[in-house]
């Protein structure tokens, strides 16, 4: 049976992890490669790096991080943040990313989704969607790190990118992100029930039952979390054991 995936996400700024971590055996708490290696050893199903480096001049620092991670972690690695065009995707893949996530650039130019999927394969292209509830049971796509509202309906958009060749959708609830109050399962269900590509749930995880709800209520294929892992609240192993105890298929 296909397993539900647990994906720790690391925010990387100028080649360093932004959110602090408290792994006791970590030599350098800000080194994303070291953290990736630990997550890999703990049984993460995939890894995700989100580059939040403000200046594009400093983006090359991320490539080094990707390269070193790929040399040490033999699980899928998704990299996103500031991906604008085919050259950006090509560079990330060349340095060892397995998938590249595109956010604002896909909204600005929807043709990029098809171009990227045709060139690199659907399996390589993740479309990241930042969603905010603007009326009851209605979500709009936001861009530029959530700063800019568009008039695009999230479900319609997800369907469109899936048809154009996106291999999966990374769906972040802006309403829940950072709140630790659980995924927006209504949003998740609205998308997973209508879109036929895997959906990664993101934004809002605060405890173990939130993860379970994302699968049972939101029907997500994969769960992304940052702070519960970074701050040592739970290990990947604990999360998986909890899900397995609740009859969710996971890789242990």
């Amino acid at each position: 049976m296909l397993k539900k995936r647990i994906i720790p996400c690391l925010d990387v700024d100028n080649g360093r992890v932004v959110k602090g971590v408290n792994f006791i055996d970590l030599v350098d708490a800000g080194d994303p490669v070291e953290q990736a290696i630990i997550y890999n050893a703990e049984g993460a199903d995939e890894l995700c790096f989100l580059d939040i480096t403000a200046s594009s001049d400093n983006r090359d620092t991320l490539l080094e991080v990707v390269k070193k991670t790929a040399e040490n972690c033999f699980i899928p690695l998704t990299v996103g943040g500031g991906v604008r065009n085919l050259d950006d995707i090509s560079r990330l893949l060349h340095f060892g990313a397995d998938k590249v996530s595109i956010n604002t650039a896909a909204v600005d130019n929807i043709d990029l989704v098809a171009e990227a999927a045709n060139k690199y394969g659907s399996s390589t292209i993740v479309i990241a969607v930042d969603a905010k509830e603007t009326a009851e049971n209605q979500w709009k796509v936001f861009t530029h790190g959530g700063r800019k509202e568009t008039n695009i309906d999230v479900v319609t958009y997800c369907n469109e990118v899936a048809k154009l060749g996106a291999g999966e959708i990374l769906l972040t609830s802006m309403d829940r992100d950072g709140t630790k109050s659980g995924f927006d399962n209504k949003l998740l269900k609205a998308v997973t029930s209508k879109v036929n590509v895997p959906v990664i749930a993101s934004g809002g995880v605060g405890n173990l039952s939130h993860l379970l709800d994302g699968i049972l209520e939101g029907e997500a294929s994969a769960l992304l979390a940052a702070s519960i892992f970074h701050f040592g609240q739970y290990s990947i192993g604990e999360v998986k054991r909890y899900l397995a105890d609740n009859n969710i298929p996971v890789r242990i």
């Binding site: 049976m1 296909l2 397993k3 995936r5 199903d45 399996s123 895997p198 959906v199």
Partner: peptide
């Protein structure tokens, strides 16, 4: 879902 994506 298609693609068949993940650990099996």
């Amino acid at each position: 879902k298609i693609p068949h994506m993940g650990w099996n």
